[in-house]
Every structure is written in structure tokens, then in C-alpha cells.
């Protein structure tokens, strides 16, 4: 066999691919579920923390900043391993799926909080003053006047960060989650051929190209004339 044929046999082995397609499709499904759970809970928690921080209660803000810095500093894999192998030692067992979900949720929460917070502080003080002077309360002003403006400028960095972190679902393979990478690796060892990895890569593209496109679409939708 020549080098090119060798390459085709190793990475584009159609027979192997056909055999393990269902397994990797399952992995894709699991990745989607995991990613959606992480995105929803991470972004919601991050927004919640940023709104809490906007209240300006000193000790609470220190706690928020500490938490956020902690989860931004730790490598996500370390958090996953700590939760999966560390917590059972403390009598708090957790499935590999739950450990991966919680870890990446906390990481996304931390990064998202910082992005939301930057967005909130970028809204001019005059917007708060104008709204409050008409009798709107603090939370009404935050929700109706400040957040819509803050969210708009946060969408590009938030989209990038969200994509980066949801790609971290691949880390779940380390603790045995059968998401795309985990499924591909299993398939690779069953078949003794790396073609399933190609399938896995394609599965990631199928998943994330639409996400990137969605990010773009949301970006234009939220734009208003300045």
C-alpha cells in the first residue's frame, strides 16, 4: 500500500465508519444534551451572579469575585477529575455525566459572569439615572434598561466563550462519558482503526458550525442603530 492509500485506510475506512456510525451518532446525541445543559445552566448562573454583583453588596461581591476567579483559574479537566474522583471520597458520589456537566457549568458560569459584568458596567451611568428618575426601581432598571444594552455587547464574547467551553465536553471522555470523543475512542479500540476519530471530528463540525452561525445571527438580531 502507498502512503496515501495507507492514510485513507487509517482515517477514511468506510467499512469501519459504517459499523461505528450508530455509536458515534449516540455520542453526538449525548454531547448535544450535555452541551445544552451546560449552556443553559452556565449562562443562567453567570447572569444571576452578575445581577447579584450589580446590587453592590461588598462582602457578597468579594465572594462572587473569589468564586469566579477560582473557576476561571482551574483547568476544567482538574475540576472534572476532582468532582468525579474527589467527591466520592467525601461520600458524595456523582456520575461521570453529572461531574462533567457540573464542572463545565461552573466554568461557563464564571467566564459568563465576567462578560455580563463587563457589559453591565459598560452601560453609561446616565442610563441608570434617567430610568431611576422616572420612578423605575433598581431591578426594573437593570432588567428593562441596562441588561438589554449590556447583553447586546456581550453576545460576541459570550458566544466565543460558550463554544470554547462546550467543546470541553470532550473532557468527559476522561471519566468515561460516551460523548463524541469517548464514543470515537471506544470505536477506535474495538476496530483497531482510527477512522472513527474522523467521524468524531465530522460530528463536532456538524454540531458546532450551526452554533457559530447561530451566534452570528443573534449578533445581527440584537444590533440596533447607534
Amino acid at each position: 500500500m502507498g502512503g496515501f492509500e495507507n492514510f485513507l485506510f487509517s482515517f477514511f475506512n468506510l467499512k469501519v465508519m459504517a459499523t461505528y456510525l450508530p455509536l458515534i451518532a449516540q455520542g453526538l446525541g449525548l454531547t448535544i444534551v450535555l452541551a445544552l445543559l451546560i449552556v443553559v445552566s452556565g449562562l443562567a448562573l453567570g447572569l444571576g451572579l452578575a445581577m447579584l454583583r450589580a446590587c453592590g453588596i461588598r462582602p457578597l461581591n468579594w465572594l462572587i469575585i473569589f468564586t469566579v476567579d477560582l473557576f476561571r483559574a482551574l483547568p476544567p479537566l482538574v475540576i472534572i477529575v476532582l468532582l468525579f474522583f474527589g467527591l466520592p471520597a467525601m461520600g458524595l458520589g456523582m456520575s461521570s455525566f453529572a461531574a462533567t456537566w457540573l464542572s463545565l457549568t461552573l466554568v461557563l458560569m464564571a467566564f459568563a459572569e465576567e462578560i455580563y459584568w463587563a457589559g453591565i458596567t459598560a452601560v453609561p451611568k446616565g442610563q441608570w439615572e434617567a430610568a431611576r428618575s422616572t420612578g423605575l426601581g433598581f431591578f426594573q432598571t437593570l432588567r428593562l434598561v441596562v441588561l438589554p444594552q449590556a447583553l447586546r455587547i456581550t453576545i460576541p464574547p459570550l458566544t466565543n466563550r460558550t463554544i470554547a467551553i462546550t467543546k470541553g465536553t470532550a473532557l468527559g471522555s476522561v471519566v468515561g462519558v460516551a460523548e463524541i470523543l469517548g464514543a470515537s475512542q471506544s470505536a477506535m479500540s474495538f476496530s483497531a482503526n482510527p477512522s472513527p476519530l474522523t467521524l468524531g471530528a465530522i460530528a463536532y463540525l456538524v454540531l458546532f458550525i450551526p452554533v457559530v452561525a447561530l451566534g452570528r445571527w443573534v449578533e445581527t438580531r440584537f444590533a440596533w442603530k447607534r
Binding site: Q127, A130, S133, P148, R226
Partner: peptide, 26 residues
């Protein structure tokens, strides 16, 4: 505060709302 109107040097209109929506919010 709803009995006390205030107008600022820098207008401070809500940029994501039309003129009418600006007035309607409160």
C-alpha cells in the same frame, strides 16, 4: 420620583427603544 421630572445634559435616552417606547416605559 414620578412627581419629579428630570432632564439631563446628555439626554440619556434608552438607545434600544424608539422615542415612543422611551416615553412609554415608565
Amino acid at each position: 420620583r414620578r412627581r419629579i421630572g428630570m432632564v439631563f445634559q446628555s439626554f440619556n435616552l434608552y438607545p434600544h427603544m424608539t422615542a415612543r417606547q422611551n416615553v412609554m416605559l415608565a
